[in-house]
């Protein structure tokens, strides 16, 4: 993922909320990012200050919450939790897994004034 693209998406949502919920400034913004979302956290932090400049979230602290990766195993027909996209099924060792969730990229909440 190109992290600047994500920061632009977050900025749009922040600006919309600032208008409808009447706040001037975001102090902390919490994101939930799934393990399979392909988001490079370091790069996201790096893009953050630049991408938020001039918005209500300029200078805000970005907190990232990891969400687990889930996949459906075709071999044993179970939904399992895995850490890495290419881990085998922890139940049967099968390697044919369909990711199910774990690709989330959402804003959970923000602290605003």
């Amino acid at each position: 993922m190109h992290e600047l693209t994500l920061v632009e998406g977050i900025r749009t949502i922040v600006e919309d909320h600032a208008r409808t919920q009447h706040f001037a400034r975001v102090l902390v913004l919490r994101l939930e990012i799934g393990r399979f979302a392909g988001v490079e956290k370091q790069a996201l932090h790096f893009a953050w200050d630049e991408g938020m400049r001039g918005s209500p979230a300029a200078g805000a602290v970005l907190e990232i919450i990891d969400l687990p990766g889930q996949a459906m195993c075709i071999d044993c027909d179970q939904v399992v939790q895995i850490d890495d996209r290419f881990d085998p099924c922890p139940l049967c060792g099968g390697e044919r897994l369909l990711p199910q969730g774990g690709d989330e990229m959402r804003i959970k909440n923000m602290e605003v004034v």
């Binding site: 998406g9 102090l27 959402r106």
Partner: peptide, 11 residues
Amino acid sequence: SRLIEVETAIL
């Protein structure tokens, strides 16, 4: 400050 629950996908 107040907490706003957003729960919105970035895209």
